[in-house]
């Protein structure tokens, strides 16, 4: 028994890796479609956007790169659909250097989107008037403070090299305080900066959508009301997709909703692995392993 325990406890990582691979692959090919519920932190964010009126301006900060595409990009696409459907005007920017590629692609995809009847409902939207993509600028906190004083000063030109000063959208909302909220979709720690350097200074609501990994650290902000909504990870994005009703818009579940089964399978495997490891650990208690609390 002790030998078995030793073998199990020192299992080659590659065996674990293979099982993880299978747990993801099988549900993707044969989904089982578990139902899920919408959590209040996601609903709060959705409802804030839903409560805005046609013509209102919001800031979407796409602070995620291609590496976090799976978790964050579906959220961006769902949000753009929600905005354009309601006539809300997004000012999109990104604070990380590998952000513009995806932010631009998502925007173009949604603008070119065709519904079931072949109509293109967002075709008439104009850059600079109904939306604007400002692109990337280095500086992080400095940019947040900068747009608090004026968008056009910080971003003299947009991503398409158009002068921003002439844009109607910035006549209505020349600075951060004139917008209705900041929606930060982040795979890096920028929400920590958006609150003190951006939204608290401008006195506007903040919604954070982040990778699941950083969600726990933003709960204090949600609890304190500094963040109106908190959309964490693929599950949060799937919930948002269901609120926006992406299935009705595009005819099939959004990418986040589709991935949730694989998610469940891996979680169950990891928990089983932890339980098995602990059973054998108790059997083989004499040999402590490395790692642990400082």
């Amino acid at each position: 028994m002790h030998n078995l325990a030793k073998i199990i406890l020192n299992l080659d990582r590659r065996i674990i890796y293979s099982v993880v691979m299978l747990c993801v692959a099988i549900p993707l090919i044969r989904p089982f479609g578990l139902p899920f519920r919408v959590t209040p932190e996601v609903r709060d964010g959705y409802e804030l956007i839903e409560s805005l009126k046609e013509g209102d301006v919001i800031v979407i900060s796409c602070d995620y790169g291609p590496s976090a595409e799976a978790e964050t990009h579906p959220m961006y696409v769902a949000l753009l659909h929600q905005c354009f459907r309601k006539g809300i005007r997004p000012v999109i920017l990104t604070l990380i250097p590998d952000g513009p590629g995806l932010a631009n692609r998502g925007l173009e995809d949604v603008l070119a989107y065709q519904d079931a009847e072949g109509q293109k409902p967002y075709e008439h939207l104009e850059s600079g008037k109904d939306y604007v993509f400002l692109g990337f600028k280095t500086g992080g906190q400095a940019i947040m403070i900068g747009i608090g004083q004026g968008f056009t000063g910080t971003f003299p030109t947009d991503y398409n090299a158009q002068e921003t000063a002439a844009m109607p959208i910035f006549r209505d909302a020349p600075k951060l305080a004139d917008t209705k909220c900041v929606f930060d979709i982040a795979s890096v720690g920028y929400p920590d900066f958006w609150i003190p350097y951006g939204t608290e200074r401008a006195g506007i609501p903040f919604i954070v959508s982040c990778t699941a990994v950083s969600a726990p650290q933003y709960y204090p902000y949600y609890a304190a009301g500094q963040a109106t909504g908190l959309i964490g990870g693929m599950k949060g994005a799937a919930e948002y997709e269901s609120l926006v009703d992406m299935a009705a818009i595009t005819g099939s579940d959004g990418p986040a909703t589709k991935g949730l089964d694989a998610q469940s399978a891996v979680h169950v495997f990891i928990i089983l692995a932890i339980i098995i490891a602990n059973i054998f650990y108790i059997i083989d208690r004499r040999r402590p392993l490395s790692g642990g609390v400082a």
Binding site: G189, V213, P216, G292, V293, A294
Partner: peptide, 27 residues
Amino acid sequence: NTTGAIQIAGTDAQAQLPFFITTCDYT
């Protein structure tokens, strides 16, 4: 960890602390 090095980590990135705690020798 796979190379068997002694690892000492330290960060104030709250989201990353759990991983250092579980994989490093001291955090």
